[in-house]
Amino acid sequence: MSTYKIIATAAMGLEALVAKEVRDLGYDCQVENGKVIFFGDETAIAKSNLWLRTADRIKIIVGEFKAFTFDELFEKTKALPWEQYLPENAEFPVVGKSHKSKLFSISDCQAIVKKAVVERLKKHYKKQWFDENGALYRIEVALLKDVATITIDASGIGLHKRGYRAAQGVAPLKETMAAALVMLTNWHPDKPFIDPFCGSGTIPIEAALIGQNIAPGFNREFVSEKWDWIPAKVWEEVRTEAEDLAKYDQPLDIVGSDIDHRMVKMAEENSFEAGFGDMIQFKQMRVQDLTVKRDYGVIIGNPPYGERLGEKQEVERMYKEMGQAFDKLDTWSIYILTSNEEFEQFYGKPATKKRKLFNGFIRTDLYQYWGKRPPRV
């Protein structure tokens, strides 16, 4: 097997979580803004696609070099060993981005990289024309401060697409962000877990996947499964290992509720698609009516932010009612994600800790209220 330089891309603020996941898979890594870089073989490519809950995508670095002119970009791209990655019938569209670089025309950069790859393949395969009717190898040229990084996307559709979301609401939380929220808590599957703003059920479902140690990518396909240089046996072994590591008999006490009965029905459908059936309990309920039967649980909420005209006062009132309802839950740890900078004021008390996160392009804070620890036995 060969060794590849691999990027796991990450939303801003989640890099440390992605790095922890990569290390948990057994790979040393380097953390940079928006990405985690590590080295691994074909198995690493398959494992990282299958197991990383908080990464956006897996990419393979083909080359990195300085490029101040289009000629440099062409020649240095052409010098890369494309024949090691692309078969002669490969479909290889080129996408690009540029930031703080002399080569700022993205369309020109894409065209030049495409031409350079074609010229390299022409020489290797001794052909003048390529039909591009085979497996997909999406190439990206990313220029940052005049350094070009050329990658191939090994995921296909983003890793947040787990395959269970049959339906979704107006502004759904990405599955990767939902998993991150769960992983940032002190929750373990032996504790009760509640999401009082469950929407289409993403946070409870991600908690269930974590609780039963089910690989988030187990029920979907990846573009690199069709690459001829990653043997089918690698994918079979990685999926078999994931099946063996899953704890399907782990009992779960997970509840999702929402004020909108349509969202509750949607969440139930998505939970069924994820394979949890009635293991997760969903119900229609106002947040201020929440009651608990057990001590030492975790509540995670992604409530409305009140950013639309006319919603602000209603949302602020709801924050206040939430604070009053949760005030008596002193053994529960509560985590609320919102962009409202005055949340603590309306909730009624300062958070134990705040963590800056980006929900899509919205800057938010995760307000953390840590509950009392259970007594030592």
Rank of each mutant, 00 (worst) to 15 (best):
V18P: 04
F68E: 04
I280Y: 02
D365H: 12
I139V: 04
Y367Q: 00
Y296H: 11
K353Q: 10
E321G: 09
L245D: 12
D190R: 05
I61M: 03
D41I: 08
L121A: 13
K353E: 05
V118N: 04
N133G: 10
K102L: 14
V292N: 11
K115L: 12
T240K: 14
R138S: 04
G134L: 03
K102I: 14
L50M: 09
E236W: 13
D289H: 06
S107K: 09
D295V: 11
Q288N: 10
F361M: 09
D244R: 14
Q250W: 03
L159P: 03
R308A: 13
A246W: 15
D295I: 05
D295Q: 13
A166N: 06
K115Q: 11
F218M: 14
A135T: 08
N270T: 07
A79I: 02
P374W: 12
T331C: 07
T151S: 11
N340E: 11
S48N: 07
P81N: 07
K122I: 08
W370V: 14
R162L: 00
Y164M: 10
K97M: 15
N33C: 07
V298C: 02
E342S: 15
F343T: 03
K127C: 11
F104R: 13
F38N: 01
K293R: 00
L50S: 05
F358W: 14
C198Q: 01
E321D: 14
V377K: 13
W332E: 02
N270R: 04
S105N: 13
E225I: 05
E32Y: 11
K59R: 07
H188W: 01
K293D: 04
G360S: 01
N213G: 12
A116T: 04
V18R: 01
E175M: 03
